[in-house]
Design a protein around this nucleic acid. Sequence first.
DNA 1: TAATATTACGTATTACGTAAAGATT
DNA 2: AATCTTTACGTAATACGTAATATTA
Lengths: 125, 125
Amino acid sequence: MELRQLEYFLMVCEVNSFTRAAERLYVSQPAVTSAIKSLEDELGIQLFDRTLKQAVLTSEGQVFYKHIQHVMHGVSQTLSEIDNLKNLNTGTIVLGITPLAGIAPLPQQLAAFAEIYSDKTDRRG
Amino acid sequence: MELRQLEYFLMVCEVNSFTRAAERLYVSQPAVTSAIKSLEDELGIQLFDRTLKQAVLTSEGQVFYKHIQHVMHGVSQTLSEIDNLKNLNTGTIVLGITPLAGIAPLPQQLAAFAEIYSDKTDRRG
DNA sequence: TAATATTACGTATTACGTAAAGATT
DNA sequence: AATCTTTACGTAATACGTAATATTA
């Protein structure tokens, strides 16, 4: 099971069509068919009913859908948080000071840092 | 980002070593190195500090770890639920009856079904 | 030097697109 | 007939293992 397959799966669920899902994912229809098929094979269940004009979830597919929605939401949140870390919107600064260095230059350095990131710094006292 | 990479990542976190993670995953060390490295490249952050003898999470790695734990737990739950569905431990039976068929044979048929799956049937009235 | 992680490289797997065929209304 | 899905197949990308190299205590 791969995230790519799950992504394709959610898209097919949303648009109820392999063709339209492929369009939105910017891949070919066969790519979607193949991904969903291998997913079904691995899970050992059929996810969609293709007998109708629309691709509609089977009852098992519905169960899978609910779970996978949560999983992919978690993935999204993870990537967002990582992006925040990279942009320094979130983060923790660890200060280490040796006795010899002294604390004399500290206030000035902290002020300089806060100045640079003035729009992003949360000054707690 | 792929589930395989996340699986490798969690294992390295657990054992604090690429070598031991590889052993537990039944793959070679280079496979783990490569998977983690491509994950780091894609995320744009460094997940582990390798300067020490042990592979230890960076601060960003710790954030990623917490999120991914939840994601993978969700994946596990999903697979468990699907297994339950396949084993008929969970499921919904939809009954459809046409007027012509009549309801006369129904009680007998339901009784027969409940008999077969007596250990798994939740009879609600 | 002993233990650990990385790099190099050849092989096998597979995701993809194009083209053709099958299936349902 | 028209629309949607699947199958066939060739190509490009990549996951893996073995072997060699680098790095740190």
